[in-house]
Design a protein around this nucleic acid. Structure first.
Length: 143
DNA sequence: GCCAACGTTGGC
DNA sequence: GCCAACGTTGGC
C-alpha cells in the first residue's frame, strides 16, 4: 500500500529544480516532532508532493511543483547534533505540468481539510488518496 | 515587513 | 508541572 505525503521546502534553500538535477537527495533539517513522526511512517516507494513554501513570485509562488518517491526510510539526520530528529531520502519523479498553487488548494472545498491549509507551520504531512488524485489532476499528471 | 500560530525554554 | 517569554515558520 503506497501512502502519500507532502513535504515543504523553501526554494531559496532547496528548490524542486535543485532536487530534479540531483536525482536522489536526503530530506534533512526537519526539527518538528509531528513532521518527524510523519517521516518515520514513510515506506520505500511512498510518494510525496514537493511544495515550495515562503516562495517569492520569482520562484512561482507558493505551490506544489513536483512529485518525489521515498527511496530510503527514516534514519538519523546527520545535520541534527542533538540526535533527536531523522531524515529520509527522496528521488525526484516528475514535475507537475502546471504547479498547483496554495491559493488554488484553498479555493477548492474538497481540499479544505488538508493540513497544508489548516496547519500552515507543519512541514511534512500525510495526504489522503483522494486528495492526491485530485491534486495530480489539477497539476496535469497521472496519479 | 508584519503578525498569527505554535513549539521550546526556563523560572518558579 | 505551570506558564510567561521567546524564537521560528510561513502566509499575507
Amino acid at each position: 500500500m503506497t501512502a502519500y505525503w507532502l513535504a515543504k521546502s523553501e526554494p531559496e534553500t532547496w528548490s524542486w529544480d535543485d532536487h530534479a538535477k540531483k536525482g536522489v537527495e536526503p530530506w534533512t533539517g526537519v526539527r518538528n516532532h509531528q513532521a518527524a513522526n510523519n517521516m518515520k511512517a514513510m515506506k520505500k516507494g511512498d510518494r510525496a508532493f514537493f511544495y515550495h513554501s515562503n516562495a517569492s513570485s520569482a520562484h512561482g509562488g507558493r505551490a506544489i511543483v513536483g512529485i518525489v518517491e521515498v527511496t530510503k526510510t527514516y534514519y538519523p539526520d546527520p545535520t541534527d547534533k542533538t540526535g533527536r530528529f531523522g531524515a529520509v531520502d527522496f528521488r525526484a519523479v516528475r514535475a507537475l505540468k502546471s504547479p498547483v498553487a496554495l491559493t488554488t488548494i484553498k479555493s477548492e472545498p474538497r481540499l479544505a481539510h488538508l493540513a497544508l491549509v489548516r496547519q500552515s507551520r507543519l512541514s511534512v504531512m500525510p495526504i489522503d488518496e483522494k486528495s492526491w488524485a485530485l491534486i495530480c489532476k489539477l497539476g496535469g499528471v497521472a496519479p
